[in-house]
């Protein structure tokens, strides 16, 4: 019964790992293929956090309830708080260059 329980847990953990690697691969392809800075910011924030949280959930599920699992939860919550802060600071760093997105022209902004 315990062995059955462990094998089911490993199956679900591997499903989480495969989902996380799909999101990380979509992050890499998005950072290469997207044309604009703001779309790259979008790919670097959302897909990356989805992949990271999926991999951490798989690790927690593989570990069970212990002290290492609490450390993993601490790292996950830290990453979940700080990565949007870093992306926001980079996006406000962009305002120094006065870049304008491609969908707007300058005449639209003057009106």
């Amino acid at each position: 019964m315990i062995d059955f329980n462990l094998s089911v847990r490993q199956l679900f953990a591997f499903v989480f790992f495969i989902a996380g690697i799909y999101f990380l691969l979509s992050t890499a392809v998005g950072l290469i293929r997207f044309p604009n800075l703001y779309t790259r910011l979008h790919a670097g924030s959302k897909c990356l956090m989805a992949g990271g949280i999926s991999v951490f959930m798989g690790c927690i599920l593989l570990e069970g309830i212990s002290f290492v699992s609490l450390k993993l939860i601490v790292i996950m919550v830290f990453l979940f708080i700080t990565n949007p802060i870093a992306i926001h600071v980079i996006a406000s760093f962009d305002n120094n260059y006065n870049l304008i997105p491609k969908t707007y022209t300058k005449e639209d902004l003057d009106k």
Binding site: T27, A28, L31, L37, R40, L41, G44, L48, G52, L79, N83, A86, I87, I90, A91, F93, D94, Y97, L99
Partner: peptide, 14 residues
């Protein structure tokens, strides 16, 4: 530009 490199560097770090 410079923010593109920063976003890519953040992604590689995570």
């Amino acid at each position: 530009s410079l923010p593109d490199r920063l976003v890519a560097m953040n992604s590689i770090g995570v």
